[in-house]
């Protein structure tokens, strides 16, 4: 089993490129570079807000986190839909779509967690409270819990095909909550402010702050893409390990029977 006890062996160090390729190395370099520039812009270059002061800098991690989470859950829903539509016709029985859905959902959950955490800190200095059960916060927690449930479902021991089908259905059902979270601030009265940016509405963020927010969103997208690609490859490795284990069991069984 994977226990990490021999992580320091020379062979293992040599194989540290297991899930990396030249493309992902370039992407990693871009993501790290963009993150450093983002920190400079968000913490030093961009101005403080006239009401919130420096607390407004939480905007640059809080808002991009949830945008990336929405995008990840959107990708999970799309690939799950494609899985259901195409798994019978594909040579890999739709495993590629299933892996992509799983990788994106996990990244989405990480960023939703970060959204909730950064939001709580921001809420304390602006609202005066870490948490309130208003519509936006409640639906976001539900989103987080639902996708944790989706990840739990993916870990239930079952036939890979059956598990992938169950997961795809749950992913499509879970995605219903994403627009509810986004529009909750318009549909109900909430303590949470309205969306920072909306299609067809003039941004209520002035120059430097607006561009810093846009740049932060781009940086978070690079980071999330890198995470998703590597997570996809690890899922593939996990499958290879399970297949290997099954073959080994079959070989053992056969050799026992032949005795």
């Amino acid at each position: 089993m994977v226990d990490g006890s021999d992580l320091e062996t020379p062979e293992l160090k040599k194989s540290m490129s297991m899930t990396a390729t030249p493309t992902t190395r370039v992407l990693a370099t871009i993501a790290v570079g963009a993150s450093l520039v983002m920190l400079l812009l968000a913490l030093i270059v961009s101005p403080a807000d006239v009401v919130q002061g420096d607390a407004v800098r939480m905007l640059y991690i809080h808002v991009p986190s949830i945008w990336v989470a929405y995008g990840s859950f959107g990708l999970t829903a799309c690939t799950s839909g494609l899985f259901i539509l195409r798994y019978k016709r594909r040579a890999d029985r739709g495993r590629h779509y299933d892996r992509l859905a799983g990788a994106a959902a996990e990244v989405g959950v990480v960023f939703t967690g970060l959204t909730l955490f950064s939001g709580m800190l921001w809420g304390k200095v602006t609202w005066g409270s870490y948490w309130q059960w208003d519509a936006r916060l409640t639906t976001t927690v539900l989103l987080f819990v639902t996708y944790l449930g989706y990840l739990a479902l993916r870990r239930l021991p079952a036939d890979p095909g059956v598990r992938a089908k169950r997961a795809a259905i749950m992913a499509l059902v879970s995605f219903v909550n994403v627009p509810i979270v986004h529009f909750s601030v318009d549909w109900w009265r909430t303590l949470h402010q309205k969306a920072s940016l909306s299609v067809g509405r003039r941004p209520e963020i002035t120059g430097d702050m607006y561009w810093t927010l846009m740049y932060s969103a781009l940086t978070f997208t690079f980071v999330a893409t890198w995470l998703m690609i590597h997570r996809y490859r690890v899922i593939r490795l996990e499958e290879m390990r399970d297949e290997e284990l099954l073959l080994q069991q079959l070989r053992e069984r056969r050799s026992e029977n032949s005795l």
Partner: peptide, 19 residues
């Protein structure tokens, strides 16, 4: 108990605004 309900309007301290 009081909660401050800030808006989605973000204005730089550097910009001129009648507070």
């Amino acid at each position: 108990r009081m909660l401050v309900k800030h808006t989605n309007e973000y204005v730089s301290v550097n910009e001129e605004r009648l507070e």
